[in-house]
Structures are given as C-alpha cells and as structure tokens.
Design a protein around this nucleic acid. Sequence first.
DNA 1: GTAACTTTGTGTAAATTCAACACTAAATGA
DNA 2: TCATTTAGTGTTGAATTTACACAAAGTTAC
Lengths: 229, 229
Amino acid sequence: MKISQNIKVAVDAVVFGYQQKELSVLLIKRGIEPFKGAWALPGGLVLENESLEHAVERELLEETGVTIDYLEQLYTFGTPKRDPRNRVISVTYFGLVSPNHFKISANTDAAEVQWFPIHELPKLAFDHTRILTTALQRLQNKINYQPIGFELLKKEFPFSDLENLYQTILNQKIDRRNFRKKIMSFGILTETDKIHQPSSGRPAKLFKFNAKKYKELEKKGFHFEIKFA
Amino acid sequence: MKISQNIKVAVDAVVFGYQQKELSVLLIKRGIEPFKGAWALPGGLVLENESLEHAVERELLEETGVTIDYLEQLYTFGTPKRDPRNRVISVTYFGLVSPNHFKISANTDAAEVQWFPIHELPKLAFDHTRILTTALQRLQNKINYQPIGFELLKKEFPFSDLENLYQTILNQKIDRRNFRKKIMSFGILTETDKIHQPSSGRPAKLFKFNAKKYKELEKKGFHFEIKFA
DNA sequence: GTAACTTTGTGTAAATTCAACACTAAATGA
DNA sequence: TCATTTAGTGTTGAATTTACACAAAGTTAC
C-alpha cells in the first residue's frame, strides 16, 4: 500500500445567469498553460484550512468579482488524467446569480471574464464541457422541484419573466394559463403594488417570491413541483 | 497564495442491503486510531492513479469482501476538521448490494465487518453519521424515480417483496393494490413461471426486473415515477 | 379433514389533477 | 383610431390518483 498520496483538490463553479431571455454561464480565459488562452470554469485549488464552499466563493470573487446568490455542490470529477500536469480532483459547484450581481470585475487571476449564452459556448479547457453539461442537467431537473428559478430573476418581476425563464431553461413551450395557475396555487408569490411597463403592451403586476411562506409550507409537507409534457 | 497544498483524498461508501425486511448498512470496526474500535463506513485513501470509483470498489473488496451491485457518487465532504489528523476530503459513494452478495469476508484491513440494521446503528467515527443520513435520504428519494429498488432484491422475487421494500425504505404504508397497479403499468416486470412458497399462505408468482425493456422505454421518454401520499 | 390462519391477488367509483384551448384588457406607436 | 404588443383570465374532457374489501390458495393445529 502506497503511503504518501499527492493529489490536488480544486473547486470549479458553473454559474448561471439569466439575461436578455438567455441562460448564460460565467467563464474565464486562462492566462497560463495548460490550455492557455482557452475559456474555462472559474475555480482553483482549495486552501488547506478553508471549506470547499469558501474556496468556491473566494475563487469566484477573486476571478470574476461576482457574488453568488445560490450555491450547491454539483459533483466531484476525479478521473486520473483530467489535468495533464498532476492528479487533480475537482469538487464542482453549481451557482446562480441574480441580475443584481451580474457585474464582472476582473483582476489579476484571470486575463478575461465573460458571460456566455449557453448556445454560444466556446471550446472549454480540461473536462469543463462535461462539467457544464452536468450542471445544466441539474438546473433543468431542479427547477421542477425546487423554487430556485427565482434566484435568476430580480427580486420583483413580472410573471412573464418567470414563464420565459422556465421555457428558456427547459427549452420548451409551456402553456401560459396552466403554468400560471400551477405556480399561483402554491401561494408562494406575493403580489406587489408596483407595476412594470414593457416597451409596448399592457403593463404587468410585479410579484416577488415569498421565501418565508415557502419554508412554512415546506414544513407542513408542501412540495414544490411542476411538470409539463 | 499558498503554493503547496497537502490535502488527502479519501473515498467512503454507504452500502445498503435489504434482509429480513430490514434495511441494513455495511460497517467496519476501526483497527487504528483515531476512533479505534469505533464503527465506520468502509473506505480509505485514493491511490494516485486510480479513479474514484475504482478506489471505492477496491476498498470495499479489501475491507469487506462484498461486491457491489449499484454504485453512484453521493456527495463530497470536506470540512477542514472532519479528520483530526490531517485535512481529508472524502468523496462518498452510495451503494446497493443484492442478497446474492451479502456475504462478508473480512481480512487484515478491518478487525470486524458487520451489517447493521439502520435502526440499530452504533455511534460512528468521524462525520460518518452525517454521511449515512445523506445516503439514506438519497435512497429514499431515488427509489421514487429510478428503478434501483430491484438491486436490493433477488433476481426473481415475489411482488410482495418489492412492496415491503418500498414500505421499509420509505417508512410508510403503501396501498397494495395501487402500488401493484402502478408498477405493473410500467411494463418493466416480467413474470416468470416459477412460484414462491411462503412459510404459510398462498404461493406467489415470481417476477423479475426487465432492465432491457426499461432502457428501451426510457429512450422513448418513459419516466419511472411513483408517489404515495 | 375441517377450521383457523396467513399471504396473494384483484376492481371500482369518486375525487383530483392535468391538458388543451382563445379571447379580452391595457398599453404604445403610426 | 387603428394596428400592434404583451398581460391576464376559465372551462371542459381526459387521465390519474385515491380509498377501499373480499375471494383464492396454501399451511398449521386440532
């Protein structure tokens, strides 16, 4: 049995944002070899005394300046040759950013930082395409049984934003009436007194997600769940 | 930024079995400090050139002699102080073993190996109780939307075994007629010509899970899913 | 050998949920 | 004021879910 193990532990994050009716991912351009100049997920090595979550948040802040609104562990990738230099296992995270926090402030760690619509992705370094695919699947599954979609919208939003968000993420049309009926039946949206004026067309009421109400209901056995053929 | 990182990478497995109408977990008694003499999940350090999955299977075989019928990654635990000696992050796995493979063959690595019904668990080493809880939740969720329950039964089983399995895992009564109707409607069980004689009572037909059929249906958009209030 | 017991196997009706579908309301701009 | 855009709303038939009880086929004890 080999006594001394030399494996590096990294974290990488797939961070989604929703802007201009598109789902986007936050990427950084690598400044060093290997894959110098290629786009990659933000991430880096975990420090010896920090938690994994802390490492992700730190790297994101260092590399992109973006603060994250929702974060959960995604999957751990550990194939021996995934990094050509050393054995590196990467604990990946899945993050969501609301429109308030889109703003990027790049610095030394990364030559460039950019949001990419998921239908215009560049080639990615390492196995990052696979990681991204895994994250996308997670998102597509999870919005159906957890109210995480709201993290991608402004605090107050017209109902149609929610509708479009779901259609975009799931990549399918959803019947407007049925969708609204379902969401409304949960009782987790609060109608504000504000209204939103679209560039043209009828003004819309603004709603907000009532997290407190959601938690209450959850305790009583309520389960957020939507499904559409 | 700290250049040299010294973090160990381990794997641990929560392996479930179903025997005598009880859900059990495979544990080993630790032979060395820390937590010498305490029960723990099987696992150990990953070798430098092996995949994570390989590490789990190797450790399981070395420590328990049990071969696993279903394995998937569970979660990665990496809190800095979870191991009092060094920083160790543990990539945990979730495994199922069919009755054919229950037999334990202990060896040098572990002083003792044992199946514990989940309602008679001893105190566990490290953060293993938490890992186990996470695994149990995964199992409880997953049997509802993936046909993994069959991995816990013999290849051919009376329908009532399946019924009891679900009731045991979910810890609730399920209406027998509705359950059977639902499962049968999927068309993923094949009736064999054999019958099972219970110690007393009416003999039962034996069924087997038709994995090929399941995959076919899955491709056509079928989704295994059961729910019972 | 029959009565008591145990386990398997099966159907229906009412309630609920889901799916499909189209028009009116309120604003803007030409 | 007319054309255009987006928001907002109900109904009906189909499908699914739930609740519920008794007969069939064997074993065991007397």
